[in-house]
Simulated assay, not measured.
Amino acid sequence: MGFLDRLTGRKPREEPKSVEQAAPAPVAEPVTSLPSTSGGLPAELRDAVPNNTLLSAAGISAPQGKLYNPYEGLATQIGTSKHAFRLPEGPEFVFEEEASVRRRDWTQHLQFYCGGGYLAGGLVGVAGGLYKFATVKPDVVTDTLKLKTNRLLNTCGSFARPFSNSCGILGLYFSGLESLYVNQLEELGVPDSVSTLLAGFSSGALFRLPRGPRQAVVAGAVGVAAAGGITALRKVFPSL
């Protein structure tokens, strides 16, 4: 039939495609509509700024914090809509146990004050040694650099060792006693500042107790004054 069709000029008949040869029609996939967005992100992923008027009418206080726009100054260049995040004023915690902690534990307290006292005493001792080296003239004039360096190191070391050891011991006493007083008196409603003052008095009195009761009382009064200074500094530097 194909040869006769060619001679007569008729077009060959197009046979219908079988069901097996027919290509299956594409199945339309269901389209999941995203929530209404602004800026190209879903509403659940955006830190939307709540309406203060609606919150006030509902009796809910509006969240506090500074608004921060990461695309400030770049929105016109990259074509991103304005979006502001509300930065928290305080630290954020993942676990509730961390958020409930208001101070260091007794081991961290011990390390902080013991190490800090030792370093502070060492710095005071080095400063005293430098002052003595600059003001006191030796009996034998040392005109060489090596002898002067040796005298400087000996003078600073003789002042720094007792100061650093004493301040480290005071920091050990103070940190341990303050943790003890806070743990025992917090349940009674006693402020933490009172526990700090008691720890200062106890630390000074315990440090000077071997020299007699009078020296212990005087050292306790000095400890109360130092603890009061620490309490005042904690209002400015809460990490103390």
Rank of each mutant, 00 (worst) to 15 (best):
A219H: 02
L110G: 14
L110E: 08
F159C: 13
R214K: 14
C156F: 01
N52S: 13
K82W: 00
G176Y: 02
P70C: 14
V236W: 01
Q21A: 14
Q108V: 02
L4D: 07
F207L: 07
K82L: 04
E29I: 03
G121E: 05
P213N: 13
G59A: 05
D143W: 01
S202R: 07
T144N: 13
G168V: 02
G90P: 00
P24E: 15
L185G: 09
W106I: 12
P238N: 10
S100W: 00
F201K: 07
V49G: 10
F159E: 15
E98R: 12
L110V: 07
G212V: 05
V101H: 11
L74P: 00
E15C: 03
A199N: 06
V31F: 04
S179T: 07
P138I: 02
A120K: 09
D139F: 05
A227R: 11
T53Y: 03
F93Y: 15
L152R: 09
N154E: 13
Q108E: 11
K66L: 12
V236D: 03
L197M: 03
G204S: 08
L170A: 14
S239Y: 02
G212L: 04
L170Q: 11
A226P: 00
T135W: 01
R214E: 08
T149K: 10
L74D: 09
F237M: 10
E20Q: 14
S164V: 00
G220N: 10
K235P: 00
C156R: 04
D192H: 06
F201Q: 04
N52R: 14
K146L: 03
T142M: 06
S193Q: 10
R10M: 06
A57Q: 08
V101G: 10
S166F: 01
A99P: 00
E97Y: 04
R13T: 12
G228H: 08
S56I: 01
A25P: 01
L4C: 08
A227L: 01
Q108H: 13
V27S: 11
V217A: 14
E72N: 06
G200A: 09
V222R: 09
L7R: 14
G39Q: 06
L74T: 11
P238A: 09
G189V: 04
G125S: 11
Y68P: 00
S18I: 02
A25E: 03
L4F: 04
A226M: 09
F133A: 12
V194M: 06
N69S: 11
P26A: 15
G40W: 03
